[in-house]
Simulated assay, not measured.
Amino acid sequence: MAPKPWSEWSMALSHMALAVVSLRAAVSTAQASRGAAAGFLLQALAAATMLIRGLGTDEDCLAGAWVATVIGLPLLAFDFHWVNGDRSSANLLLGGGMVLAVAGGHLDSEGRSVAGQAVVLVVAVTILIVAVFTTNTYGMWGGAMLGAAGLLSRLEEDRLLLLPKEDVCRWALAAGSWAYHRALHTQRLQWE
């Protein structure tokens, strides 16, 4: 059996890191916030599915990643906004994600890619704004990491930091998920 090339190991490790971080965050936030836990769980399931399916690009895996982006990330932002009393932004983000999830079947792959990147950036910016006004340092780091993942995915380069661009984006998303998990915990402590 031939050894796996570095790019396959890199892809597997980035999917595994995102799945583990997101699953851990889902389990620990389930008691306090079911919405955020569902968002983390969608991310974990999408990453685990890609890992288990052999990192392929079949339609089921891509659909799972699409749902994790357009519904899972708005669920994370929903809780962050809701707890701070910004219910209109929370509902708008979640409603927009639901509309995109339904409309995804009518978009081509480029349209889905652009819409997914837009969702990532909108969620990152809105959480970053709330985190700045509430002085939630973890929220600021989470917003920065998620924003970095969204911006890096738009670059034309195939490799960043000697790794495939998609892997770097997943590592940034995993770091952002960990920071959001901590931000939600910090936020809950402030409100108790």
Rank of each mutant, 00 (worst) to 15 (best):
L146T: 11
N91D: 05
L51W: 02
A32N: 03
A90I: 07
H181E: 03
L162E: 15
E166V: 11
G56M: 12
A47F: 11
L151S: 08
G111C: 10
H185R: 13
S109M: 15
S28T: 11
A12H: 11
S88I: 14
D79R: 03
W141L: 12
W6V: 14
L107T: 08
M11P: 00
S113H: 15
G56D: 14
A179L: 04
R154I: 06
L163T: 07
H106Y: 13
I71C: 11
T57Y: 12
E166T: 15
D58K: 04
L152E: 02
L152N: 05
L41P: 05
A131E: 12
Q43W: 03
G150N: 02
G85N: 06
S10R: 09
A77W: 09
G72F: 08
G105Y: 12
I71S: 07
E156R: 09
L51Y: 01
V120M: 11
W178C: 00
R188Q: 14
Y138K: 03
L107D: 06
G104L: 06
M145F: 14
T57D: 11
A77I: 05
E59C: 09
L18M: 15
A36M: 04
R159S: 12
V27G: 02
L92P: 00
L18W: 10
A149Y: 02
G150C: 05
D60G: 10
E8K: 13
S28H: 14
W82L: 05
G64Q: 13
